[in-house]
Design a protein around this nucleic acid. Structure first.
Lengths: 201, 201
DNA sequence: ACGAACATGTAAGCAGTTACATGATTGT
DNA sequence: ACAATCATGTAACTGCTTACATGTTCGT
């Protein structure tokens, strides 16, 4: 249940219309909590019904008309409480890892291409993060608390992308290396291998 | 749509009943693609209906009776094709990053505790991965291809947990440091700050 | 007047979670 | 006999995705 809080945060940083929020979720906040415009409009409706935000009454509310939203005191309180809330990290669900594991059983055909494609994606994302850091946080730690927290999150993004790039290089190297002599290659007709069974990993 | 392929992989590594699969998804494969027993039973039914797996006819199929499943040739082909399939990484959705960002606007009360809690969780997970590596992959790279791929995935888990631990230490340090003189602290009554607005990050 | 882009929605469907139901086996 | 546990499911709900619908503004 984090989307409403993502929207509250975005609206506190700056009151916006649905479309403006959608655009901001394509950059900024969306880098670590993405949302489509359908999600955003629906959630804006819920938040307004719950009395946490309101539409600025300046413009007539009609379909196709811009509606500007701002956070009400109740919304700020809700967000303040949520920040202190405990929530376990979501279980990892990473299809690429699954593909590697499957490739161990049915063969690695086509895997290298996919790894290289992911590598390019992560390199592009890292470059984007680095550009943002150079532009928005040039002086190290001479900023106020909100900026330092934003920088911290940005560094998390940089760290994650760096990890992926490092690991994908390692994966490509492993994939290229021939198996040592005597080792069985994977492929059709292959059953369970030793090290499996009771061996969880 | 990765769950069926996770199950096919697990069943190829070793034919299992629904409950055995559930147990294996609590370790092993479940570390990077978790699934509950309800998901698994439903998906086993679909895979059987699609002709990709079959229940071994040895035991009578009744409620409360163990059913053992094995992968049919069509299932192996399906998995082989899927390994070569391209799929973009899922957009990141990390509530902890959201909390930091929200804390920049409404204050950091209660955040430190949550960060320390996550740190402990990731340290425990890393220890578990390290134990598995020491037990299952003692000799570096003298293994066959399936084992090397499994080791690769395990190292990804180790790398990710190591990243989290590093970053959480950094976050806790940042949180403890007082803001430099002249910087505005976050809190109620605070609106948009400089660096926001057109500044995406 | 008309098309393109802007802006706000609705509807259907799917994956995953939570809560509950039911039969079989084992221990006492 | 009874409870606890094993084993397999069903049902309802939530969040997210995909596809579609509708009205408005602006340029030509």
């Amino acid at each position: 249940m984090s989307l409403p809080h993502a929207i509250l945060t975005a609206l506190l940083e700056r009151p916006s219309s649905g479309l403006e929020l959608t655009r901001r979720f394509d950059k900024s906040i969306g880098y670590f909590w993405s949302a489509s415009h359908q999600q955003i409009y629906r959630e804006l409706g819920r938040l307004e019904a719950a009395g946490l935000i309101r539409a600025l009454p300046s413009e007539r509310p009609a379909r196709g008309q811009r509606k500007q939203y701002e956070v009400l005191p109740a919304g700020r309180e809700e967000l303040t409480g949520w920040v202190a809330t405990g929530e376990d990290p979501r279980p990892l669900r990473e299809a690429l890892f699954l593909r590697l594991r499957a490739a161990g059983v049915v063969g690695t055909a086509g895997l290298g291409e996919e790894l290289r494609r992911h590598l390019a994606l992560h390199e592009r994302q890292l470059a984007e993060y680095n550009a943002i850091e150079a532009r928005d946080f040039p002086a190290d730690d001479a900023a106020d608390t909100p900026d330092r927290l934003r920088h911290l999150v940005l560094r998390a993004g940089i760290g994650l992308e760096s990890f992926w790039i490092y690991w994908l290089h390692e994966a490509l190297t492993t994939l290229r290396e021939p198996a040592p002599p005597g080792a069985r290659p994977p492929g059709p007709g292959d059953g369970a291998g030793p090290g499996d069974g009771a061996g969880p990993e």
